[in-house]
Amino acid sequence: MIVYKRPESLSDVPMHYCPGCTHGIVHRLVAEVIDELGIENDTVGIAPVGCAVFAYNYFECDFIEASHGRAPAVATGVKRTHPDKIVFTYQGDGDLAAIGTAETVHAAARGENITIIFINNTNYGMTGGQMAPTTMPGQVTTTSPYGRQKLIQGNPIHVCEMLSTLDGVAYAERVAVNNVKNVRAAKRAIKKAFQNQIDKKGLSIVEVLSTCPTNWGLSPVDALKFVDEKMIPFYPLGVYADRNAMGGDEND
């Protein structure tokens, strides 16, 4: 009896992510959820600009490449014209919380009935580890070489907390994928975020604390520990919104 095998909707191709990068785990979880909900036929994914720019090569469902930060707007364009389809965006912290903040906030405020998978690895990975809106105080990146300093680079953004204040948000949970227990919990959250869309409850977002071994300069396993020791205390896991925001389609 097969206990675990590669999900069907995860394309059978090698992924370009760095060794130990937990983007891969989240891709797997999304694909497992798509399989279990049986929605691959009706799903359209929106890929960001960032390490996950090639996400469209890794899923078997239709995919659209969004320009940097604009995935929630692109998703709105797809969902509003195809309310019966399942639309999800997969975005990094620079994409969602820097250049795409307006698109994120307004898609949430409108209660777009979409699912957002938000990867928070505290830096711009693809371009080599620059400071992101989620870079933590004192954290060194290539554009905060002396550690992030409040008076110069300002303060990080807590996305789940921020978005939970918007009435259109049905569900906002922050999870992590740095150990088996957390990965299993993350999958439950992702599944709920997709189920919410099927049930037309409004916008659902899962913020995933993720590792970036290469740019953090840590081994993949030490990067998992960094999440425990540094990220989770600063970005507490948990549910920040869980309601029926009656978003999107009901009002059409």
């Binding site: 359209v44 929106i46 659209i64 969004a66 320009s67 604009r70 707007a73 692109v74 998703a75 709105t76 364009g77 797809v78 509003r80 014209t81 195809h82 389809k85 307006a102 698109e103 906030v105 307004h106 059409d252």
Partner: peptide, 26 residues
Amino acid sequence: GLCLQAESEVAAINMVYGAAASGVRV
């Protein structure tokens, strides 16, 4: 049909991009 006022012209053109990519006149 749908008329949606976006948060900016940048968001609006990207909504158009999404709608066009999914095959509708927009």
